[in-house]
Amino acid sequence: MNEEVKKNMEEFGFPVIVDEKSGAMQWVDMRELRLRYIISVENIKPFYEGLREGKLMATKCKKCGRIFFPPQKDCPSCFDSDIEWVELKKEGTLETMTVVFVKPPSFGQYDPYPVAIAKLDDGPRILAWYSGDPQQVKPGQRVKVQVSRRKEGYLMYELAPI
């Protein structure tokens, strides 16, 4: 809580501040909420097991052969959950890119990061950070999927120039 709020609470009795630009009085919320979700990955465990070994795993419907990436456990075409896990070839062609300069606070520890979408030679597209120099990217840039350890300490896939 900032000093002005503390001071006003002591002297005036309430957690208020005066907005600098407008001069309007603001109540500073006493109830802070921190969000951290717990998300089930039970049905895509093979994806993470593959990633640990440097593999990019997708699901494939055994009936119609449709490939899903990101993986999903149900095929809506066949109304079937009989899927198998297949390894995707890790090479493809970069289709578009951006560089995120203004970052969400939860990514504050990173330098501006390039994000790219590539079409893998097997068909599916993948969105990930691009580890090469964004200024050197040429139209039709070939890329490969590789796995690296994040600053937070976990493994994640990224795109690297070939």
Partner: peptide
Amino acid sequence: FWEFENFGLT
């Protein structure tokens, strides 16, 4: 989960 959590897309 797939695009924000790991790649911080704004």
